[in-house]
Design a protein around this nucleic acid. Structure first.
Length: 325
DNA sequence: AATCGAGGCAACCGCGAGCGG
DNA sequence: ACCGCTCGCGGTTGCCTCGAT
């Protein structure tokens, strides 16, 4: 037996809200509040809507002080940086942006910001430029000063702070002297703590780390300093990145490194790319190809960006391991 | 002017968490 | 401890708009 529906779908209106419905809901909530029960609200308010629909409409549209459209550069940075650190937890990200809803942020990321980021029009801010970091502390949603907090930290709920997928706060991890980063295919370890298909992976940003070409060289045991574009895939495929793209700047930027390790998260064609500010980019290819220029496949920092890895589960990690970092 | 496709956004869906009985 | 109910979240869908052809 499946879950009972939250409402009688046959007797509720669905689809876009009319101005009359908006007015009715707004009037009711402003007069009576939600009463802590959205399920019962539509009947009391005289709406033929599902309670969940009412809640969504109120939170995402009718609530006072909602901002729509026109995300600022500061907001872009907040979203990008938090996304790089905590992934697609839109409610947390939205809570840092006064007047923005999780739905808004999510849509903005999916439709615009991801592309903007890939095009290099907005950057992720790292621990190296913490003075400008939008990663913020405090919880007052109306306080916009946090956008320029000089001593940033993000507070996750306790359970999340202990979640091995988010092994520790960025602040804690940034002080890590040496975290195991890259090993080869045989060890099935890429970046550390999270595990995907038995391959461990944590992007540098999640660890609050700056990731430089020399670090990569060291970890790979290979001299990369004179190799702005590295391919070390088992297939030995070379990679051509789109020209004029800051993120995938390839040969134009000697500090940027492309790594096609040929191992890891499911496919020999997976690629990892670290640019000069420490941002890890991940490219998943379904099939081996010499053309890795489909921008839609590049993701910054977090595997969580790719829904095909939604099954990421932490494995074999305990607090003592976390404490090492 | 008509058609088509891509992009953007609002809304829906299903699941997990939390809470009270 | 268990169960049922509601809330909140993230992923997905579908409609609308707009630009290109």
């Amino acid at each position: 037996m499946g879950r009972a529906p939250c409402c009688d779908k046959a007797n509720v209106k669905r689809g876009p809200w009319s101005p009359e419905e908006d007015a009715t809901l707004k009037r009711y909530v402003e007069t009576h509040g939600t009463g802590g029960n959205w399920i019962a609200l539509p009947q009391k308010a005289g709406l033929k809507r599902c309670g969940k629909s009412c809640r969504l409409r109120w939170l995402n549209y009718l609530r006072p002080d909602i901002k729509h459209g026109n995300f600022t550069e500061d907001e872009d940075h907040v979203i990008c940086t938090l996304y790089s650190q905590i992934g697609s937890r839109w409610s947390i990200i939205a809570s840092r942006l006064p007047g923005r809803t999780d739905n808004d942020v999510k849509n903005y990321w999916n439709t615009k910001l991801k592309k903007k980021l890939l095009a290099g029009k907005v950057s992720l801010l790292t621990s190296n430029n913490a003075n400008n970091s939008p990663i913020i502390s405090g919880s007052n949603p109306t306080d916009t000063n946090h956008l320029h907090d000089s001593n940033p930290s993000i507070s996750l709920p306790k359970s999340e702070a202990c979640d091995p997928q988010y092994p520790a706060s960025p602040t804690q991890l940034s002080s890590s002297p040496s975290m195991p980063l890259l090993t080869d295919h045989h060890d099935h370890i890429a970046y550390g703590l999270s595990t995907v298909n038995n391959h461990h992976f944590i992007p540098p940003h999640s660890a609050g780390m700056s990731f430089t070409s020399s670090t990569v060289s060291h970890q790979l045991g290979t001299s990369l300093k004179n190799s702005p574009v590295l391919t070390s895939s088992q297939e030995g495929s070379s990679v051509t990145l789109p020209a004029g793209n800051n993120v995938n700047g390839g040969v134009e930027d000697a500090d940027q490194i492309l790594m096609d390790f040929g191992f890891g998260i499911g496919d020999p064609c997976d690629q990892y790319y670290v640019n000069n500010n420490g941002t890890l980019w991940y490219n998943h290819q379904e099939k081996a190809t010499s053309h890795h220029d489909d921008l839609s496949n590049w993701y910054p920092s977090l595997l969580a960006a790719d829904s095909s890895y939604a099954d990421i589960k932490p494995q074999g990690l305990n607090q003592s391991v976390i404490n090492q970092y």
